[in-house]
């Protein structure tokens, strides 16, 4: 009984057990209008006996622009602007997707874009949000509320320090996972 009540109370107060102020953390994230970073990504698949690595650049601009440019080993650009997703692989023609038409994809995008935007209320509409750590080293746990979305994303973890986001980990329904180490650029 207590176990059921505990997280509810913690969210109500927007404080994790060890005193992380979730409201303040989100406000700090929301205060950054633009972020540039490089990333190194590691993907682990149950179907493959070794991880796949890639590197590239990230750009976020408030409120809803996000781009991920993979430089190595296979060039690809993923741009999300509002409700539109454009994916360009190598020299192929860009593929345009409407996020409104594919809610599970929107959930996946919002797991990354939501913490950067710092809008806690919006985040809670799509995910059950947990927080751990302190301002000096925090982790947000996001679990999609919509069971359809859970097919693309079982769980997301976004971690960082202060108002910097330093890592994103996405776990698929089948346990495959994707870990991104992020190094912010000035």
């Amino acid at each position: 009984m207590l176990a059921l009540l505990a997280p509810r109370r913690a969210w109500g107060a927007d404080k994790a057990a060890d005193g992380l102020d979730l409201q303040a953390l989100m406000a700090g994230l929301a205060a950054v209008p633009e972020r540039r970073a490089t990333f190194q990504e590691t993907r682990r698949f149950a179907a493959l006996d070794q991880p796949l690595l890639s590197t590239g650049r990230l750009l976020y601009r408030r409120p809803a622009y996000f781009s991920k440019t993979t430089d190595w080993p296979q060039p690809e650009t993923l741009v999300v602007d509002g409700g539109r997703l454009v994916l360009t692989a190598g020299n192929e023609a860009p593929r345009v997707l409407d996020l409104g038409a594919v809610p599970e994809l929107r959930t996946l995008v919002d797991a990354i874009r939501g913490p950067l935007a710092g809008d806690l209320a919006a985040l809670r509409r799509a995910f059950s949000v947990t927080a751990a750590g302190a301002a000096g080293g925090w982790t947000l746990g996001l679990v999609p509320l919509d069971p359809r979305a859970a097919r693309l994303l079982r769980q997301a973890e976004v971690s960082g320090r202060g108002s910097e986001v330093l890592a994103v980990r996405l776990v698929q329904a089948n346990g495959d996972e994707q870990q991104m180490a992020i190094r912010p650029l000035p």
């Binding site: 690809e76 993923l78 994916l87 495959d176």
Partner: peptide, 16 residues
């Protein structure tokens, strides 16, 4: 190639 790209979730769902 798909597993390396952003469409990896689709590739694991259908492609494998």
């Amino acid at each position: 190639r798909q597993l390396r790209s952003s469409t990896a979730p689709l590739a694991t769902q259908f492609g494998l």
